[in-house]
Every structure is written in C-alpha cells, then in structure tokens.
C-alpha cells in the first residue's frame, strides 16, 4: 500500500509528520488526507489523531476533503487584499463557474483561500499547486486559468 511505503521511508518520529502529510498529498491525485490515513499515521508515529488533525487543518496546503487535480489558492492576507483592484476571486469563480471551496465537476480544479504565500511585494498573488503567480491583472488571471483548462500543465 502506498501509505505504508511513505510511512516506512521516514524515521518513526513526530518530527516527520509534516513531510509525511505533504508526501501523501503529492502522491494522491485528489490531494487530500483521509480519516483512515490520519488514524494510520497517528498509530504509526504514536501520536494522537487530534495532533495530526491539528497539523492538517493548520496548513492550507493540506486538506481532509477530496480536491481537484489543480488547487487554485487565492491569498486572502492584507497586502493581496489591498492590491486587488479587479477581484481575483470573482474572476476565477467566473472562469471556472464554481464558488470558493468548491471543486469543478470534472475534478480538475478546486478553488480555495490561503493564508499568506510570501509574495506581499508582488501582490495580488495566487498559487496553483506548487506554482505562484504574482502581480496579477484580470487578463493575466484569465490566461493562466485557460492554460490550465487547455491542459498545458498536465
């Protein structure tokens, strides 16, 4: 089982919890950590489920609900909010025809908020999986989304 393989590739120590979680998220096309996986991880590391849940819920990189192949995260911290003169969120919502926290019917995109992604000097910014896009304009956002829709990143 893939989870067992991941768990065995790290020392049995709670210090590796975040690495393990990120590894699982990366390997699963639907990018989420299931309840069963949380139980197995906590048993393996000898920590409580509450601890694993707390870590998963703290990082916007991680989720306990199934998500799309591409996770579009809109920064909602202050510099991005203040520099957003065209409404990044609304633009993406219109392009994908979903609301924040939803996943498209074809399971390709999930739209979420995120806490600061460290691009305050180039706000507004979004992140799609591992790539950050900064200094956004409305056209730029539309182009980025259409590239993903057309499968240029698949």
């Amino acid at each position: 089982m893939f989870l067992q393989k991941i768990l065995e590739s790290y020392p049995i120590s709670e210090d590796y919890l975040l690495e393990i979680l990120l590894d699982i998220d990366k390997q699963k096309e639907n990018h989420y950590i299931s309840k069963e996986e949380i139980t197995l991880i906590s048993n393996h590391l000898g920590i409580k489920e509450s601890h694993v849940c707390s870590v998963v819920s703290f990082y916007t990189l991680l989720s306990t609900n199934p998500r799309g192949k591409y996770i579009i995260q809109i920064c909602k911290d202050v510099p991005c909010y203040l520099n957003d003169d065209f409404n990044v969120l609304k633009t993406v919502e219109n392009e994908l025809n979903i609301r924040v926290n939803d996943t498209t019917r074809n399971q390709k995109f999930t739209l979420e908020y995120t806490a600061c992604i460290g691009c305050c000097d180039e706000a507004p910014a979004i992140r799609i999986n591992n790539i950050t896009y900064t200094n956004l304009t409305k056209d730029k956002v539309v182009n980025i989304i259409s590239d993903y829709k057309e499968g240029k990143h698949d």
């Binding site: 409580k48 509450s50 601890h51 819920s57």
Partner: peptide, 20 residues
Amino acid sequence: AMHVLESMGRGHEMEIKPAF
C-alpha cells in the same frame, strides 16, 4: 497525556475541539 482536545484550523477560524 490524553491529547483529546487540540486547536483545529488557523487564525480567527481556529477552534479547540477533538479530532474530526
């Protein structure tokens, strides 16, 4: 050493509750 309660979520959305 029971660790039933933990903080879940972050920022103003953080809540203290048991797992799940």
